[in-house]
């Protein structure tokens, strides 16, 4: 049973090292300024992310069709 298969849960993936830098440069922010997600979050546990990672969330949006969101994993 994968919690990620639930209809309410959008796609979560861990951002690769090189993509992280690209993203932070594009947005002009530091990691800590991103919205957060806890390490204890069930989905974070499921994909095996650690504190300090950035998670890319691909949501289905009623306005934009698909929207991409990033969260910084914190303790």
């Amino acid at each position: 049973m994968r919690l990620q298969d639930h209809i309410l849960v959008p796609k979560h993936e861990i951002l690769k090292e090189e993509e992280v830098e690209k993203l932070l440069k594009l947005l002009g922010v530091s990691k800590e300024q991103l919205p957060k997600i806890k390490v204890t979050d069930p989905i974070v546990k499921e994909i095996g992310a650690k504190a300090g990672d950035i998670i890319k969330i691909t949501r289905k949006s009623p306005t934009a069709g698909v929207s991409i969101f990033y969260r910084f994993v914190v303790e």
Binding site: D5, L8, V9, H12, P42, I43
Partner: peptide
């Protein structure tokens, strides 16, 4: 279970995480 939902948002947060709670 993939299509089973509740109207208790806090429960969704605990079981399915913050993104599901937002949705």
């Amino acid at each position: 279970f993939t299509r089973t939902i509740t109207n208790d948002i806090y429960e969704i947060y605990e079981v399915l995480g913050i993104e599901a709670a937002r949705a």
